[in-house]
Design a protein around this nucleic acid. Sequence first.
RNA 1: GCCCGGGUGGCGGAACAGGCAGACGCGGGGGACUCAAAAUCCCUUGCCCGAGAGGGCGUGCGGGUUCGAUUCCCGCCCCGGGCACCA
Length: 698
Amino acid sequence: MLANEEVTADGRSERGDFPVYRRPMKQWMLRITAYADRLVRDLDLLEWTDAIKAQQRNWIGRSTGARVRFDTPAGPLEVFTTRPDTLFGATYMVVAPEHPLVAALTTPDQRSAVDAYVASAARRSDLERQADAKEKTGVFTGSTAINPVNGEAIPIWVADYVLMGYGTGAIMAVPAHDERDHEFARAFDLPIVQVVTGPEGTDVQAEAHVGDGVAMASANAEISLDGLAVAEAKAAITEWLEAQGLGAGTVQYKLRDWLFSRQRYWGEPFPIVYGDDGEPRALPADQLPLVLPPMDDFSPKTSDDEDSEPEPPLGRVEGWSTVELDLGDGPRPYRRELNTMPNWAGSCWYELRYLDPTNDEAFVAPENERYWMGPQFDGDCGGVDLYVGGVEHAVLHLLYARFWHKVLFDLGHVSSSEPFRRLFNQGMIQAHVYRDERGFPVPADEVVADGEGYTYQGRPVSREVGKMGKSLKNAVAPDEMCERYGADTLRLYEMFGGPLDQSRPWDTTAVVGMYRLLQRIWRLFVDEDDGTPRVSDEAPSDDTLRQLHRTIAAVRDGMETLRFNTSIARITELTNHLTATYPDGGVPRAVGEPLVLLVAPLAPHIAEELWARLGNPDSLAYQPYPEAMDDLLVDEAVELPVSINGKVRARILVPADADASVLEQTARDDPKVAALLEGATVRKVIAVPAKMVNFVVG
RNA sequence: GCCCGGGUGGCGGAACAGGCAGACGCGGGGGACUCAAAAUCCCUUGCCCGAGAGGGCGUGCGGGUUCGAUUCCCGCCCCGGGCACCA
């Protein structure tokens, strides 16, 4: 048994190239659609990137519209539309090939054509249907429907551009205002009737007008939409349809219910058994957990028989697949559910288990959940403080886990309504991929660079950037760097390369920079020759103290925004300042100790070692992270640019709190500025305290 | 096609809220120390013109707003990711 994505375009299994038969199966579904609205709405509460939020919104695909009933010879045919305002422009209808009314709608003279079309559509995989989506195909059923707003008879077609899985599997086609319907109408020469005005030059016969406009040609004896804008027209016609009992406003989602069954061994077994009557029953709590039975052969049952019933591996476990149980009404025979749950079943709630891993009474004690994940202010959704993970989980894991968590919330098991308050998607360390003339990857570590380009075994190869992996022959392990420079250097180097969310190719050339930084820090504290500590108990200078506190503030900021590269840059600056100020040792302890603590999360080993050498008996892990003193963050004097007509011409030194008039006067007093202003007309002066001065000269 | 990101020196990347573009590191150039080398330290390094002082240009491209734009607005180009007949 395979999932759709494991089947190749030519209908064979990706692994092994076996023929694949499509087969409807009875499986467990979770009603994630019931949560669709909340899953969309609560995205607003999350600190996630807009990209991921947008992906989830698109995936859920909430759209508002109306359901409308059309009368047909086979009974009422209901459609979903987001544009009920264009009802007067509906010139035909389309049902999906799988629609239950297809047979009833088909007239005898169209029977063979429709049957052939439906059969060919059934044979084609979703993939194939998508592949040639450009070409619209379809067949007339022979029947017509009555457009409820104007009583017109419009033909009903079968076409595979309408999907059974969305809406009602049937549409009203408005070719004048829908691109797909327009294409179809042109292909089969169906009428195109404009009912919404477009901009100058709009010709709906040539191209559908999908945008805004004002309703036209949309009136019957009871209602007229003419003159109304799209939104108003929608509201008006929906109200009318509801009053007439012809339809109702509704919300539709692209999101489908969650197929939760897998036909393999590995996965949580469902605690469900079936009685003689075929009805499913849940195992009572005292018979949980249900664990997988031991097995030797996990492979699924194979068969070449196209009509054989698929059977999961668990079906072969005698004495497990059928059991005798007492579910309260005496011992009876039962068949177990043989499907297992998908991996998501575990990944949807594992974060909760970390809060209370040894609890064998509940998955998490309520007080633990409240402490770690509970809401922190009114209107807060709660959840883990920071979840770092890959973007590839944007719409599967992250949506499933949110749904799961909300179910637990509704059942009262958790106080947080979202699992992951803040999400951060880390980038990937990539690698160069080298390909020969045929486009095949060649081993990256055997490629040599000449001045011009790159060659492999003397032949030129192309270079691109890609994921690391075996198939691209470009994987590199960090082990060698770790061996040579140590784990601290490796850590710093990885963090210094750029922001965490960015992907970039692995490149080792700059690693010495971080190695040098650590050595400089080390030498600040330890004498190279005899290993003795070099710090002093002197008071640091005002300048050094300010530098320290600016560093603390900046490093903290980098930590909070997960931009460790900037934290490291600020630490480097402080280190450079200290080596220059105290070339022969004697860094004041009052500066040295905070520096070591700042370094600790980034390069923990060397920091811990230095902390001990500074004479501290306990681990620095028990120390609070340094805090910046606000009054030390501002300088007493600042150097500001003076520009004339926007070009920087000089710099002036002024007190940090100097006001605009002082700035202007100081600037005017500057000899260079004075020379440039001489004889010129100053039209305007902009002086922004602590920022700059600009003279506008005419 | 639609929706999201992103484009800054030779390279990785800074610039919190429209106010000194290029922090920090790598690489390059020059120097000190050394018998020599490594290591270390110092100076220098966006591009162009100029001997110099200095001047001009510069954040993908073209416009705009503003005293002032990497930052805001409009229109393009290129790269990366997602979705893809969802009515």
